[in-house]
Design a protein around this nucleic acid. Structure first.
Length: 123
DNA sequence: ACAGTGATTGTTTAA
DNA sequence: TTAAACAATCACTGT
């Protein structure tokens, strides 16, 4: 009924379209243009599960050093996890998103304000 | 010594 | 609607 954030599995993905040079390496950019005060994305349900999974994994696999293996193992199990189990983590992520959502609204308002000012203010 | 890389999936945002 | 980018973790590696 509702198409709200429907992360529908669409294997149809083209390539590269909007590369956003946020700030990976190089950096010198006049502050105020990018999103220096933009609320960062909260960890997703997958990450919450990983926190728990990570500990368990290390206990059973103290030999594993890199996080890469844990990530794979976590992802693989995540796909096998029952929805009921996942819902538990989704619930947490949902709450975080709620807070993030509010922060984003205010950020947007402020951002618009900044853009407006910038438009006619240069020195 | 510092900072980036590596993999995982989910959520985000801009046009 | 689409798709690219980024969110955390943590040992290792390059300069």
């Amino acid at each position: 009924m509702k198409t709200r954030s429907q992360t529908a599995p669409k294997p149809l993905k083209t390539v590269a379209l909007a590369p956003r040079p946020s700030s990976s390496k190089g950096g010198s950019k006049p502050a105020g243009k990018g999103d220096p005060l933009a609320p960062k994305k909260p960890p997703t349900a997958f990450f919450f599960y990983m926190e728990d999974f990570r500990k368990t994994y290390k206990q059973e696999n103290p030999s594993v050093k890199s996080m890469q293996e844990v990530g794979k193992a976590c992802g693989e199990k995540w796909n096998k996890m029952a929805f009921e189990e996942k819902v538990k983590y989704y619930d947490i992520a949902t709450q975080k998103r709620a807070e993030f959502d509010k922060a984003m609204i205010e950020y947007k308002k402020k951002k618009e304000s900044i853009e407006m000012s910038e438009e006619s203010d240069y020195d």
